[in-house]
Design a protein around this nucleic acid. Sequence first.
DNA 1: GTGTAGTTTGAATCCTACG
DNA 2: GCGTAGGATTCAAACTACA
Lengths: 279, 279
Amino acid sequence: MLPTSVMNVDIKKIRVIEDESTIINKIIVGDCLEVMKSIKNDTFDMIFADPPYNMQLQNELYRPNNTKVDAVDDLWDQFDGFEHYDEFSKLWLQEAKRVLKKSGTIWVIGSYHNIFRVGKIMQDMGYWILNDVHWIKSNPMPNFRGVRFTNATETLVWAVKDKKVKDYTFNYEEMKTHNQGKQMRNDWYFGLCTGSERLRDEKNIKVHSTQKPLPLLERIILASTKKGDLVLDPFGGTGTTGVAAFKHERNFTMIEQDESYVDWSLKRFKSFQERLRGI
Amino acid sequence: MLPTSVMNVDIKKIRVIEDESTIINKIIVGDCLEVMKSIKNDTFDMIFADPPYNMQLQNELYRPNNTKVDAVDDLWDQFDGFEHYDEFSKLWLQEAKRVLKKSGTIWVIGSYHNIFRVGKIMQDMGYWILNDVHWIKSNPMPNFRGVRFTNATETLVWAVKDKKVKDYTFNYEEMKTHNQGKQMRNDWYFGLCTGSERLRDEKNIKVHSTQKPLPLLERIILASTKKGDLVLDPFGGTGTTGVAAFKHERNFTMIEQDESYVDWSLKRFKSFQERLRGI
DNA sequence: GTGTAGTTTGAATCCTACG
DNA sequence: GCGTAGGATTCAAACTACA
């Protein structure tokens, strides 16, 4: 059970940042770049980013039983080619570097469609990679046509701002306790976000096409932040990063352009807090 | 047991390519780029490449102007190092694309130090990624200082020359038989190359610092080639790719600059063939 | 409530031959 | 090059229905 002080954290939706204190435990509605520009240097202890993957789907895909696969075709994932995607990546990664504290770390998740580009851009910007971490899915979507290997993984890049940074947070012993007392490796096993965890609207449609599993975010936060740290998620989505931070007594700032996602995040927090209070 | 015709394959070391037929089951001593330039277009059914990752080694061996860099190279900052590595990567990947048949596939293995750069460069060159595959090591080197996660993986990129290529070889059913009858996924579990498989010299020193496990190469070859296909390994090392190809009745061409590695490869083949003949 | 069988679904760069 | 018809293709987990 969390302390009462934590249970009563007041999570707010805002549209404009006025001063430093207003960003703690806030979900900011707005464009990721614009909002980050209004935040001062060296603000966050850790950044988790789940940017659009730029999937470039080719055709419709049907399962062997002729049902259609509900692919990611959201507008937020549409880019006009690699060049535009790279430009977008450079811009947000540059702002992220500026608002990250000197000894802070950044996590970026992606698939083979985008992660090589993101990783190289990060290296070129001076980010120093600490690990690549592989989320290995217990229940991925199969390759229905049998023309490739099952794509059962997503990749995370974990990095510091600069090669010289040595005093970043890595809770080595804490990680050991999550791995039968042995050193935690970079292959992580989690299921997809399904069941009661997956947010669905009144028509039972998933609210967000790419909601991440909470245990993944919990491990990230437990590994690389301390209690009371401030975590930024520039692509907040439906708030998984915030929930994981809140659950482990870290503070957060999330940025999300889609107000509907933000409102769902707020619902999630309300219900999570009520559950904690035994309501 | 392999057919006698295969067992008696005559594997030769050569220094110059004279005509097409001379590259079949040959190990060519020489610079990867120079040798590839002497091979004609659309020659290979599959390419496996394990390029050097070590930046320092890179700088020494492959500085684009062909000047050899002196031993300690602290003057080279990381950005400079990346630029040269990228240049080197573009050069060999371009030649690889040229000598790869239209419907051929290419595999490149790397770690987080280089694979993001290699992957992005491949995408920029028009290669179309089919899968990222993750070699997950059962016995990786621990992170001794406890400052990062155990780096227990290496990443492979599997790609075709162009987005339009659809008739590449993928032995779907064969792969199923290696995965309890179920679709093969992109997470592969193999131990490091150790024990009797690991080549060691008379002083018991490892012959090659990054010798890959044979089962890894066997899976790659069984997945993406047919019997009789011709496989290129531009960084042949101590010959694992050739041994895997030979074992499964594929032909190969390997290029290796270090003559000592080449001689070790020949020893490996001789001993492998003798074992097959029951000597 | 319990157990079992059937249904649904997930960040997907997912076909081929022929006219 | 394109459009279209034909035909081969899926795994694990959560959920639902029903006995």
